[in-house]
């Protein structure tokens, strides 16, 4: 293909992709919309995939993009499904324990950077045009055959687990028949509003979170303002 720019060009693209990866990674925590957060993360992963391609790890790079696009799509579906205010129409703080997480983030970054800078990376360049994909295939069918087949069983366990946990309807009827939410304190009354008391939501009624319940619901629908805890991100006061 000839030379399109020299090392200078490669460096430039590397820095551009790195900057994009870091910037979009940072955006994940700054945007209000779940969808924007999800796909900002995806952009970050795609940039990393691009860097891998730049380093001639074609398969890893492209596979990263492939897998991450699919996985972020699925994650986005769940994020929108379970988070209040998924479109970020009202600005909010997505991070719990704000100060602690900033501290932990900085610590992690410094730690990893130090590790990267202090490590002696092996320096045995591969011969040019080595077909790494072929090597991987031989490895999968040869030495690592057992690992490969075990991965199949692990994936099967994942599938069965996911289906069993999340599917309500099954051969033996609805999975939540006779189920009651756990008590608010050990041995106490089940959490959630009671059905019999004047038409609350029943079941796990805590999805609403307290902010909107406090002002939206009619006074008679005995809302416990603390039910939203635990499964929803909330405004830092």
């Amino acid at each position: 293909m000839g030379r399109i720019g020299g090392t200078g060009m490669t460096d430039l693209i590397f820095y551009a992709l790195s900057a994009l990866a870091i910037w979009s990674g940072w955006r994940v925590f700054r945007v209000d919309s779940m969808i924007r957060a999800t796909f900002a993360l995806m952009v970050s992963f795609i940039s990393v995939g691009g860097i891998a391609v730049l380093m001639s790890a074609d398969y890893i790079g492209v596979a990263t993009v492939f897998m991450m696009a699919v996985e972020m799509m699925v994650m986005g579906l769940f994020m929108v499904m379970f988070m209040m205010n998924p479109a970020g129409l009202n600005p909010m703080q997505m991070v719990h324990q704000y100060k602690f997480s900033i501290g932990a983030g900085i610590m992690g970054f410094v730690g990893l950077t130090t590790a990267v800078l202090l490590t002696n990376f092996p320096d045995n360049p591969l011969p040019e045009n080595r077909d790494t994909l072929r090597d991987l295939g031989i490895e999968l069918l040869g030495g690592s055959m057992l690992i490969f087949e075990t991965a199949g069983v692990t994936l099967l366990a994942t599938m069965v687990g996911a289906v069993a946990l999340s599917s309500r309807r099954g051969r033996f009827g609805d999975s939540d028949v006779g189920a009651a939410p756990p008590g608010l304190h050990p041995g106490g009354e089940p959490a959630g509003r009671k059905v019999e008391k004047g038409g609350g939501h029943g079941g796990h009624g805590g999805h609403g979170g307290h902010q909107m319940m406090a002002e939206k619901t009619k006074p008679n629908s005995n809302d416990d303002p603390h039910e939203g805890h635990g499964n929803m991100p909330e405004m830092e006061a």
Binding site: D58, Y59, A69, V70, M73, L133
Partner: peptide, 21 residues
């Protein structure tokens, strides 16, 4: 690209994302 089939697969999955968006 040596892995252009995978690359095309990546395109396919990105399209789902884009149409959703």
């Amino acid at each position: 690209l040596d892995t252009s089939v995978v690359f095309w697969g990546a395109c396919e999955s990105l399209i789902v994302v884009l149409i959703f968006l």
